[in-house]
Write a protein that binds this DNA or RNA. Sequence first.
DNA 1: AAGAGGCCCTGATAGC
DNA 2: TGCTATCAGGGCCTCT
Length: 287
Amino acid sequence: MPELPEVEVVRQSLDKKIIQKEVKKVIVRNRNLRFKIPLNFSSFLEKKKITKVDRFSKYLILYLSNNSYCLIHLGMSGTIHIVYKSKKNFLTNTSFYNSPTLPKKHNHIEISFENLRLIYNDPRRFGFFQIINNQDLLKKRFSHLGPEPFDENFNKEYVTSYFEGKKKNIKNYLLDQNFVSGIGNIYASEILFLSKVNPFKRVDLLSILDCKKIIKNSRKILNIAIEKGGSSIRDFKNISGKKGNFQKNFKVYEREGLSCRRLKCQGIIQKKITSNRSTFFCNICQK
DNA sequence: AAGAGGCCCTGATAGC
DNA sequence: TGCTATCAGGGCCTCT
């Protein structure tokens, strides 16, 4: 699922559920995620309180009561589910598996609190959990990442100087987390459509006005997507099993062959591959 | 240093 | 019905 808006939607709903709660028990059913879950992962988390649920870019950050952190990245197919305690023996009770919103397979990690259980599901296992021991290491962990689109450092000066002498196309840079972090393949196409910029345009040939529009529209698209509860294509749902709504706002993504939605534009939406990713755009209004 | 390409993995869908 | 091929929202690594 997860670009910045989807991760933010998960953060918001998770925050309300587990804040100030103590981890009672952790079960790792499959250690082989993007990075192997270490053997001491469970014992490290157990008896710690969650003091804050934060997010940077596409990463969830659980703040733990001993001033360490648990990072969660959902990869391509990771989802978080919450199931509630019904009766006693919660820690050993498996009846919640009948929950209609919980997938039957690929429930790799379970984190139990007093009255509820967080379950991490990830068919493709591109996601990961990581313990970070202190604030310095957290900073270091994110040091290679560029600013989020919302960051005031993501501005005209930063973007234009970053693009000097660069020959890759703009779509590639919107996906490049070192340049700007949080944008993924869906929103990159949508941002460029709204900005009337062709995704295959070389960044050193972009005008200053193009750069300004891309900055403004990155914020705009991500904010609207968060408001709408994220995008539910294929199967993204928030932790309560509710679908997002932003997919209804897609102007180009997965609209190959359909007519351009811009008023008076006669264009037909095209799909082309760059850096192994589908890219959607209107070849008439995106110059 | 920058850019192209490949790989990790499972599941859904299309085509034969 | 069942095979095979292709593709999927991410990130990291290697090679040139």
